[in-house]
Simulated scan of single mutants.
Amino acid sequence: MTAQRACGVGDVAVSSAVRVELDGVAIAIVKDSAGDIHAIGDTCTHGEISLSEGFVEDDAIECWAHGSQFELRTGKPKNLPAYEPVPVFPVTIDGDDVLVDVQNPVKL
């Protein structure tokens, strides 16, 4: 795995997201309502909007502009207007570091 540090665990509050860029790829690091950390592509597939500026509820993040929700584990949209998924990246927690492998997106 070619994981690299994206942020610290404490940099992301529960039910929120932060935007990072790794190897030129915009990533949303999201902590869901259960406290699990996910890494997904930060750009909504419907409107080129940053998902990290959206709303996190349970296991999904919602684009603030058009309301599409994306599942954090699969990247699949839960509702329209988006119909294309966002990429999901492997996450490893190493101490206080959130490591993300942008070279090997999860294949679902």
Rank of each mutant, 00 (worst) to 15 (best):
Q4Y: 05
D94Y: 08
T43Q: 10
C7M: 08
N104F: 00
V20A: 11
E53M: 14
R73A: 14
V91W: 01
F89C: 02
T43G: 00
L99K: 02
V102K: 12
A26I: 00
V14Y: 00
K76M: 10
L72T: 07
T74Y: 06
K76W: 06
A26M: 02
C63N: 06
L99N: 00
G67D: 09
V14G: 00
R5A: 14
G54R: 13
N104G: 00
D59M: 07
I93Y: 04
P87A: 07
S52V: 02
C44K: 05
F70Q: 08
T45V: 03
V88G: 02
A82S: 12
V86M: 00
A28R: 04
A17C: 12
I37G: 06
A82D: 03
D94A: 15
S50E: 14
D42G: 00
G8Y: 06
A26Y: 04
V25H: 03
S33F: 00
A28E: 03
D42T: 02
V9E: 07
S33H: 07
P87R: 12
L72F: 08
V86T: 01
D23E: 15
D11W: 04
G8N: 13
C63W: 05
V56P: 08
V12F: 07
G95A: 12
V102G: 12
S15A: 15
I49L: 07
F55M: 11
G24N: 07
D11Y: 05
D58T: 08
A28Q: 03
G8L: 12
I93F: 04
D101T: 07
G75T: 05
G24P: 08
V56Q: 09
F55G: 00
Y83E: 13
S50C: 12
N79R: 14
D36C: 04
A26Q: 11
A39S: 07
Q103T: 15
P90S: 02
S16T: 13
Q4T: 15
D94V: 10
E48D: 15
P77K: 06
I27M: 03
S52C: 15
D101K: 10
G8M: 08
G8D: 11
H38N: 04
Q69R: 15
A39W: 05
P85L: 00
G75R: 06
K76H: 10
G24L: 05
V20F: 12
N79V: 13
G8F: 06
I37R: 06
T74H: 07
L22V: 08
Q4F: 04
L22G: 09
F70C: 07
I37V: 15
D32A: 02
A6K: 09
H66S: 07
V14P: 01
I27A: 01
H46P: 06
D23C: 11
E21S: 14
N79H: 13
V20M: 11
I93R: 04
Q69T: 11
A34D: 14
V102M: 13
K76Q: 13
A60L: 09
V100M: 07
A6F: 10
V18C: 14
E21W: 05
A82E: 04
Y83Q: 10
L22K: 10
D23M: 10
E48N: 14
L22R: 10
G47Q: 12
G47V: 03
T92K: 14
E21A: 12
V9P: 01
V30L: 03
N104I: 00
C44H: 06
H66F: 03
V100L: 06
R73Q: 11
R19E: 14
